[in-house]
Design a protein around this nucleic acid. Structure first.
Lengths: 198, 198
DNA sequence: CGTCTATTTGAATGTACTCAAAAGCGGTGG
DNA sequence: CCACCGCTTTTGAGTACATTCAAATAGACG
């Protein structure tokens, strides 16, 4: 259990870096959380289910993806330590999820259920500020990704991704990196061959 | 001035549809706003400047875009009545903007300056909730757009855009629609020719 | 009417995909 | 310890998607 308490410290650091919380509020926040461990390939959410929680990643590495009619996977997000992951649309509207979330490694997350989050937001209004800030930053990051998708080639997107997350090609299978970039694994392989020459 | 008061009613409806505000809070919010009118092709923000405000569109139609090294434009967003537009990254961090925002038609916006927004957020904490909700929805929408960009072809993206905004091809020049979709105007023209046959 | 810009058309090129097969890699069981 | 299996990555060839360049047409505006 000693590492479990570390995880709660971790998420509290994450919160208090953005907002001020009293000891009591911190406690109440932690009480609303559930610690959950996943094995590699275990699902946190499946397409079709209703997403009931937001998950803060304490340890490990997850991937969210959409499976289309042809059965092809498209990676929307990956989430590492100190990140949140969910299917936002499904969470907000309590509709069927269109994304799967799966562990890529042994994972530990702290989950907060939607209705508990809603309660907390009423009890501790400053948490509205926390999620407002979180979503503003997420929005800005997604905006940058959209620009990459419309403005540059797959090869450039791969180069930028590596620059941003230098070790990602060791941590995530290339076929998932390809689907994140919006290209095929075959084409990514060709890109990598070319880049070795430089 | 009669239409100006309409615009304040409009933004108050927009707010009170999401949060509850007292009369006094509504007044304080409106006092923080500045009404601004733009002619077509007039800029609300230019790449390189620091973005100091968030703008709520009362009337007209705007476009935000990035100009790359080769001088090519890439349309990130367009904003219609009842939408907000800004360069979020530049606004949050008060860094040089990487996006331009320009009026496509005669435009009326209600602007709130960053520092005034920050003050308001302290004075009226429930506004944190408002922007949290706004950003959550924006995030979910951007997520969908990223999926479109990585999962489907330009032709399909155009079809979906038309389905979502049926009159957009009458309101926005095709070359900007093309840049929004991440394709060239020439290719969009070919897509349109094919779709007429069906 | 002329000018300016947007859109279309056509042709050649490049970018990225599909299909098929081979090579690499990790795990499992004999 | 090695052979085999399943899965990922690479390679090669042919194809489709999307771009560039150049020129023609269409529309908007003074």
């Amino acid at each position: 259990m000693s590492d479990a308490s570390n995880y709660y410290e971790m998420i509290l650091d994450h919160l208090t870096a953005r907002i001020n919380l009293t000891e009591e509020e911190q406690q109440r926040f932690c009480d609303a959380l559930t610690l959950r461990r996943l094995l590699p390939k275990q699902y946190l959410l499946q397409q079709g289910d209703i997403c009931r929680h937001e998950s803060y990643v304490c340890k490990g590495f997850l991937r969210s993806f959409y499976v289309d009619d042809q059965g092809d996977e498209h990676t929307l997000h990956f989430a590492m330590e100190d990140w949140w992951i969910t299917d936002l649309r499904s969470l907000i509207r309590q509709e069927a999820a269109t994304r799967n979330i799966v562990a890529m490694e042994p994972v530990t997350v702290l989950q907060i259920e939607k209705h508990k989050r809603d309660e907390l937001l009423k009890e501790i209004p400053v948490l509205e500020r926390f999620w407002r800030i979180l979503n503003e930053n997420a929005c800005a990051a997604q905006d940058e990704r959209i620009l990459d998708n419309i403005a540059i080639t797959g090869a450039e997107r791969y180069a930028r991704l590596l620059k941003k997350y230098p070790s990602i090609d060791q941590r995530m299978p290339l076929k998932h990196i390809a689907s994140y970039l919006g290209i095929t694994p075959v084409f990514l392989s060709q890109i990598r061959k070319k880049q070795l020459k430089n």
